[in-house]
Structures are given as C-alpha cells and as structure tokens.
Design a protein around this nucleic acid. Structure first.
Lengths: 137, 137
DNA sequence: TTATTATAAAGGAATCATTACGATTTGTAA
DNA sequence: TTACAAATCGTAATGATTCCTTTATAATAA
C-alpha cells in the first residue's frame, strides 16, 4: 500500500496542501474500506487512533479531499457519504441497500439527455442506482 | 383551478386521508409555483395565512403527499425539496441551476444498467440533470 | 538544523434541517 | 350532532454540519 499512498501524497503536495498524519490516515481508511462512509463512521474509526479528533477536521478534510478528487461524495438520506475515487474516467455507481457495497456502472447516457433537451446546457448530473447485490439478494 | 383541486381531494379521500385546509393550501401552493420548494419555503409562504403552522405539520404533509404521489422530492445540497408530481409515467428532471426551472426528461436507461449488472437487482434509482435553461444561458 | 510562517487541528458552541411528542383541535361518518 | 380517529400545535429534542478562537504542526528558507 506504500506506493499507493505516495500517489496521494503527491496529489496533496501538487495542490499546495499539507501532508498531515490525519489526512493520510483518512485516506488509508477509505482505501481499506473501499465503500461510502459517513462523517460519523470516519469519526468512529479515527477516534480509536486520535481520541481528540474533531468533527471540524473531519469535515474539512473530507471536502478538501473531494476537491482534489481523492474522494467522491453523495448525499444518502440526508447524510453526506464519501468514498475513495476509483478511477479517472466518467462513471456512476450501483449501491447495495443492504450491505453498502458499490459497483461501477459504465454506461452513461448524458449525450442522449442533451439531445433530448437541445435548448438547455447540461453542466452536470447525478446518477445513482440502488438495489441488492448478488450476495444480499 | 377548482377542477384541478377536486382531483387532489379525491386522491386524498381514496387513500383514507382527511381533506384539511392546510393540505389543500399546500397543494395550491405547489400548483401555483410548479417548481421544487424546500420545507422552509413552504413554511414561509403558508405562515402568511396560518401564522401558527408548525413544522411538524409541514413535514408530515410533505411526506404524506409524496407517499400518495401528489408530490415528488429530491435532496438538493442537504435540503429536501418537493414539487408537484407532473405526470404518471416514469421520468426524470433537468433542473436549471440559475432559476430553478425544471424540465421533464423522458429517456431513462434503467434497463441498460440492469443488463450491465446482471447479477444485482436494481430496485430504484436517482437521476438528476443540472445545467442552464435556454433563458438563463 | 533551526526559525519562521502559514496551514491544519482542537474544543466546543452555534446553526440548520428534521423529527418527536403530549395536548388540543378538526374532519368525517354514523 | 356526536364521537372518534386523524391532524395540528407548540415546543423540545436530535443529528448533521459549520463556525470560531486558540494551539499545534508541516513546510520552507536561512
């Protein structure tokens, strides 16, 4: 995992951000879990290592890491969830409502939508697909 | 608008719900605005008529009306927004980020997604398309 | 390596959306 | 018109997120 972490360190440095222990621990957590985590889950996990970690730090870093595209986020039932950003190409996710496992979905019909609404300019979109994964079904 | 309202009264009655003044006023507001409104906006509008209207009533009715498909909702920037449900067939929305105007989008590739992920069972999905409408562009 | 400086984190209070709940009122059916 | 269940009120509680001031720490230059 060391090489993997190096990549993230470079990314932080390239954005003029400091490489702090808490940021790196957060990234490691997201790499290990590889699923959507809420701020609260992050707090619970990191509290074991840093008993005094504040929510301010968690939220600030979650959004900082999102800005530099280390994380991606989605609002699920009024709670913002974050996961490690999995690849560079455009994609969406299937999310298992039972276990929270996610799968990448490649097909995205944004061009079809744009051609259906010729007079508007689509700048972004949100697609999320929910259901039961093979294991939970 | 009277005939329009009658339709909603029937819908409420058919679901065994009471036709209350506040519910009807809420429906009228959504019909008049025809766009996504937050609970707070609903409160502000209805407060003029019912100075003591409680949030409990607003939220309960918003979700009640959603249950019987009078309203549809979406979470936008951590706040739940509601709009009058515009038709009976499955569709999604384009939402103008400038003026909040919405347009119906008919194309939905849920079958394509299901065939891309054959081993999972898709139970529901969320699609929202953002951008600038013709007027705001 | 040390000193400097700017960014990050701590600790805790504040805010915002949403929900909960006992007491009271209102719509509906008999 | 009455009785009862459903809806509303008034207000408190909750949960997620943000703000603020002080303190600590990482990066950088000497």
């Amino acid at each position: 995992m060391a090489a993997e972490l190096k990549k993230y360190k470079t990314k932080l440095r390239d954005h003029g951000l400091k490489i702090t222990e808490k940021r790196m621990t957060m990234i490691e957590l997201f790499l290990k879990e590889d699923r959507y985590l809420s701020a609260k889950e992050v707090q619970e996990q990191l509290h074991k290592i840093y008993p005094s970690l504040s929510y301010d730090t968690i939220y600030r870093n979650l959004y900082t890491l999102k800005e530099i595209e280390v994380l991606e986020n989605t609002n699920f039932e009024g709670e913002m969830q974050f996961k490690i950003s999995c690849s560079d190409h455009h994609h969406h996710h299937f999310i298992c409502e039972e276990c929270g496992d996610t799968k990448v979905i490649h097909y995205c019909p944004v061009e079809t939508w744009q051609s259906e609404l010729q007079d508007v300019e689509i700048t972004n979109h949100k697609v999320e697909i929910y259901g039961l994964c093979a294991a939970c079904k």
